[in-house]
């Protein structure tokens, strides 16, 4: 990517974000009720999007490579276990990341 393309990419991220933050204040007044379809999407979209992002993060894992995606699978299990056990976001992220770094640097 050239510098101009990078700037355009970042600007699009910023503009898109601002659109989602400002739009409700431009579209809806507190008096007018929000359309049901929009409220429905608001309820169901987050779960689907974060499911997609987990897959997006793992998109380049090659199951046929020598490690067979094992470090990723183990580290995700660690993240999930820590999170279900303690419920502290930072601990879960830090624990899983350190575990993954150890795995890819020393074991696999």
């Amino acid at each position: 990517m050239t510098l101009t393309q990078q700037i355009i990419t970042i600007a699009l991220c910023a503009l898109g974000t601002m659109a989602t933050r400002f739009l409700p204040f431009l579209l809806f007044s507190a008096r007018r009720p929000t359309p049901r379809y929009i409220r429905y999407l608001g309820k169901v979209l987050p779960g689907a999007i974060f499911g997609m992002l987990v897959v997006y993060c793992l998109r380049s894992v090659d199951l046929l490579a020598s490690s067979h995606g094992l470090p990723e699978a183990i580290a995700i299990a660690v993240v999930a276990a820590l999170h279900l056990w303690k419920g502290q976001m930072l601990l879960s992220i830090a624990g899983g990341t350190i575990c993954y770094m150890l795995l890819v640097q020393t074991v696999f």
């Binding site: 987990v54 995700i76 992220i93 899983g96 990341t97």
Partner: peptide, 18 residues
Amino acid sequence: EGLDFAMTAMFVVIFLDQ
């Protein structure tokens, strides 16, 4: 090496919360 896993871990955590 492997630091980028922080992003995966973050999304796994948010996904679990969801």
